[in-house]
Design a protein around this nucleic acid. Structure first.
Lengths: 148, 148
DNA sequence: TATTGTTATACTCTATAACTATA
DNA sequence: TATAGTTATAGAGTATAACAATA
């Protein structure tokens, strides 16, 4: 099986990588109109879930080095979208929260992201889109333990 | 719809991006044992298809800047996996070809890549894997015009 | 001693501009 | 004048190491 090297180009794995890159680019384009990057929207999305997250926990969820999260949160804090509050129980930690403005922007940007997604998946009928989501959820669930 | 920002985290778009990154990392890990990167395997895969490709055409197919393809082909040529031949009809172009050794390595690496893919998609039954491939093909077909 | 957040720094990856040779 | 390939270089993005504050 898979003896001809060109089979790589029609494999699910390759198509998955390519589709991911395309979706990522499209998402960043659409979010640029809101003044956000895809990564920044992910921070807002994680904070809107209700859990009290520290930067360490956030870096684990995002799969990013903690040193990168510093600058990421810096940028959001400067724009008054996110706040850092010292954790009383462990004063080394910050607890990250959304400001009301951050919550508003998160809603707008989420809507824009949904548009980009629908745009990108436009070739699929609704049933196929649901199937794709279900399958990807099954694939990624083990690697994203905080998923519902 | 999509009013709660945390819905981003369970959207098909986000899962697609994450799954793509995971697959890409896993692929590079597995291919490292063959002394190849994922990108290098893609070059070999495109050249094994039979079309006579120039570096420009290759850069379009890979979605990479032509200046990056220079170094990519350099590395494969140094290892005698690929050859550059001047196109007689247009002496500005190189025609890229696989050497026998390049073809052999492409087969081995393709097999390794298939293993990585099966590994990553292990949570899916065969029917779901086929469905995923079909759906991704439909999504990406317009952006990858050289696909069969 | 270990952990959270931080800074500085070095490294990798990428794109831009400018060049050559051919058309 | 435009295109294929090349080089040099600057910019962005990343990880590594070392630090202060706290546990």
């Amino acid at each position: 099986m898979a003896n001809e090297a060109s089979s790589v180009l029609t494999s699910a794995g390759y198509l998955l990588i390519k589709a991911g890159v395309h979706m990522s680019r499209r998402l960043d384009e659409v979010l640029a109109a809101e003044g956000l990057t895809g990564r920044e929207l992910l921070v807002l999305a994680h904070l809107s879930g209700g859990d009290e997250l520290s930067q360490q926990e956030l870096s684990r969820r995002l799969g990013l080095d903690p040193t990168i999260v510093v600058g990421l949160v810096d940028g959001l804090e400067e724009r008054s979208l996110v706040t850092r509050t010292r954790d009383g129980a462990d004063r080394r930690r910050y607890i990250l929260s959304l400001t009301p403005g951050g919550r508003r922007l998160a809603r707008r940007a989420t809507s824009a992201a949904a548009t980009a997604e629908a745009d990108q998946l436009g070739a699929l009928d609704p049933a196929q889109q649901a199937t794709l989501r279900t399958i990807l959820h099954a694939v990624m669930r083990p690697h994203l333990p905080w998923l519902p």
